[in-house]
Write a protein that binds this DNA or RNA. Sequence first.
DNA 1: AACAATCCAAGAACGAAGTT
DNA 2: AACTTCGTTCTTGGATTGTT
Length: 225
Amino acid sequence: MPYEPPTHRVERSLRATTGAKVVAGVDEVGRGAWAGPVTVCAAVTGLRRPPEGLTDSKLLTPRRREHLAHELGGWVTAHSLGHSSPEEIDAWGMTAALRMAAVRALEGLPLRPDAVILDGKHDYLGRPWRVRTVIKGDQTCVAVAAASVLAKVRRDAMMAELGESHADFAFADNAGYPSPVHRAALEEFGPTPYHRLSWAYMDGLRRWQHLKKIRTDPVEQIGLF
DNA sequence: AACAATCCAAGAACGAAGTT
DNA sequence: AACTTCGTTCTTGGATTGTT
């Protein structure tokens, strides 16, 4: 697949068709994780050429991502981060939590955007925001790509910090996502205050903890998690 | 008409294999 | 030795298609 760098096309189109003067690109990270917040970044960019190599954060190695995030800090016109906590995700569900995090990010900008470019096909933001959804927007729109890198680097750093007090879970490596080390720690110690308790994996955990009480044969426990 | 299953989109880690 | 790519694994949830 040939590498196509992201462009200002959607931003320009939004300015032309809606008269928007300030356009923000929005992207989220931490959606499928078992622990930690869901984080959203809103980024407003000018029309200058973006830093070399800018694209979807998922396509970048950690080193390049961090280097790029540093450059982006000076390149974007403005950017702002918003979070929703695990408690909020449990209470409201992912879509509402995502919306809250996005609103926090957008309202943290020094000026209110006239239009928003959302990554994906679903508009989880809705009124009163003027939203344009773009599938694979983090690979095609500079503002969304910038937001994806800034959000990812920030959340990874936050998870590394949380990990210091819960070393067995290795949050610095897995960012709260299910990994063998993470699973093993969960089985042994149970969830931390940073875990999303409403999620499906908890069924397995409760079942496992229940069985642990009534039977100790380790062979019987295999495959329950 | 109501419910269930599937598809697609988003988020990501990780290990193996291939490439520089 | 250090990167890159690929395939597999996990999650939620909206939209669509299929079945009763």
